[in-house]
Design a binder for these strands. Structure first.
Lengths: 235, 235
DNA sequence: CGCACCCTTGAAATTACTCAAGTTCAGTGG
DNA sequence: CCACTGAACTTGAGTAATTTCAAGGGTGCG
């Protein structure tokens, strides 16, 4: 469990393949001159905590690679995953409005992210309408994702919820391949127990809607047509 | 089912009791000069639709009185309520980033709101850092509410969810009184059936955690201590 | 008075949870 | 090279919670 950090420079941003989807998508070079604190590249192993709910927010993280889960702990100690943050998404946006983090962010896989000090955001927000526009877009994305989460992953029975989660995880992958988080996390996302998550995955596998790509039951190829049917409760 | 609309003027805003919590909380009078399109006062009867998912967004609504539900329709035609919008909250914020509405907004009770044209927001956003600050605050509130919704109202069993909903509905009311929406809406908020919602409400009533204030089973006084226990699954 | 509309309740069927073993697999150390 | 171990996944059986389908109240309004 380790995190590696090293500083980035303007050139790195300029050549970043993710920039189109990032906060800095449409900044020009005079905007970059306004950055007065160093932005760091961060590589976190799976299971590393990026920040904890309630703690003082100092950074915003834009994920370039890997998957981060945002979790809330319940009174009984169990965790509920409230959102997944993937490449192009931002974790910790709330600190630009609130000082402290509203949830805990934990790496599900190895994660590569840019760690941006709050001060950079604040300065750019005032000086650059381009950054400001990106920020609003990110707020909207986050809110829409949260709403989708309620509508898709917290409604219907376990089969429907899992089918919708799988479709969301493959996203736009043309090969229909995906990495499924541990069953415990699947349960925490769908609001079901680990056992029910496991049983439902196993059932999808037997029915041929999920085809194993490894021996650990983590990588799959999907039958999108069948999953869409299952997501709607047909069959 | 009817909506009444009439124009508002700066003086109305200045004397508005809700202004502290509204988008215009800290605008000064030069900011108000920038308003180039009329803001309207809107009174909508219960069950009126304020806007529909996917339609072109032209207005942002700040609720002054009453309750609005934001819903998404599922493939089977049923509805899932994804958020409640009450006094001080905003419905339709997403159009400041996206052009179209992400959900349908329906009045649960009679609703009084200010209907603000998008153009006003856009103009003020560029010219007034004070409005801009309010907007960010509202984005954050909306996102946090959505996250809370997932963590509180979509986790645990029906008793826990209902208890948490009731505590949220009383809010900071000192008398512990609340208006409970129709059972169908309660179900659509908690992701349970109308019947289960009804049974659980009835059960809380029998146990004395809910005390009737009317004969229709809509107005109640609550036993906050008992509800907190139920929300945590104790007993 | 009677019609709507919603809320309530019952009973059976289904779904999900709980508790408790097994199983598999990757990594470790002999 | 192989047995051991830990972690995660799977499965079973009994129980609990929820849904489903169906019928029976209550209240307000025309």
């Amino acid at each position: 469990m380790h995190v590696k950090i090293h500083p980035l420079h303007e050139n790195d941003c300029a050549s970043c393949g993710m920039r189109e989807q990032s906060l800095f998508a449409n900044l020009n070079s005079s905007d970059f001159q306004l950055i007065n604190q160093p932005i760091h590249d961060l590589v976190a192993e799976a299971h590393t905590t990026l920040f904890a709910e309630g703690s003082q927010g100092e950074y915003v993280f834009t994920v370039r690679k890997g998957l981060v889960k945002l979790v809330r702990y319940q009174s009984d100690g169990s965790q509920r995953i409230i959102r997944l943050v993937g490449p192009g998404d931002i974790a910790g946006l709330e600190t630009t409005a609130n000082a402290s983090y509203d949830s805990t962010a934990i790496a599900v896989t190895e994660v590569q992210a840019c760690r941006i000090p709050l001060g950079v955001i604040q300065r750019l927000e005032n000086e650059s309408p381009r950054l400001h526009q990106q920020l609003v877009r990110k707020w909207h994305e986050a809110l829409k994702t949260a709403d989708d989460f309620i509508a898709d992953l917290a409604s219907g029975n376990a089969r429907q919820r899992l089918a919708r989660l799988l479709l969301r995880l493959v996203g736009s992958d043309v090969n229909g391949q995906l990495m499924l988080p541990p069953r415990e996390d699947v349960g925490a996302m769908l609001g079901i127990t680990t056992e029910t998550a496991s049983r439902t995955v196993a059932s999808f596998r037997r029915e041929g809607m999920l085809i194993d790509m490894d021996r650990q039951g983590r990588f799959f190829r999907i039958d999108a047509t069948a999953l869409h049917a299952a997501a709607n409760g047909s069959e």
